[in-house]
Amino acid sequence: MNEVGEGAARALAAVEQARQRTRRQVEWWGADIIFMMWGAIWLVTNLVNQFLPGMSGIMQGVLIPLGIAGTVIILRRGNLRVSGAWLRQFFTFWLLLFAYGAMWLCLLAPVNEHRIGLFVHTLVLFGFVVMGIWLQTKLFLWVGLSLTAAFVAGYMLLYQWLWAWVAMVGGGTFLCLGVFIRLKLRR
């Protein structure tokens, strides 16, 4: 290839690199912190639920609102860097999903604690499955499907230790996912 051709190839490579870097920065910015934060929350709240059930309500009442507030702040900051309609769509989706979950919890009450817990956890994971399809992100799709399968298996096979199982598998996966995004996907 002559000098002109090599210059053109370098320019095209720079275009492709800028495109990929932009998409990664838009799609994954803040996701590492959000996943690590929710991984820690899942880990702590479920371990407390397993080993100190009397403290469970207080712990969830404090940590989950903190997690939601942190997520909103991070996503709003992301939307200031690249503004678009996605933030409103994202919040609308999760709000409707939780409203749907709350409706069914009210309609099906009283239900035992294990079933309620499993329903709420898998509802969140169903949100990941939908987001995986919506954003064409296989990582979310597979995390949602595999954790759902793991939680249902835990419900059937490790009933007495379900919350410890959910803490380790769910919290651990989210923490690892956060680290993976920070090291591999945000660069």
Binding site: A11, A14, V15, E16, A18, R19, Q20, R21, T22, R23, Q25, V26, L80, R81, V82, S83, G84, A85, W86
Partner: peptide
């Protein structure tokens, strides 16, 4: 300018890039 245009065209049609985001990115 080629990289700036490549970055801007990588955004979805409804998205707008903030100045400091482009500074950091590029």
């Amino acid at each position: 300018r080629l990289r700036i245009m490549a970055a801007l065209l990588a955004l979805d049609p409804d998205e707008r890039a903030e100045f400091t985001f482009l500074c950091d990115l590029l």
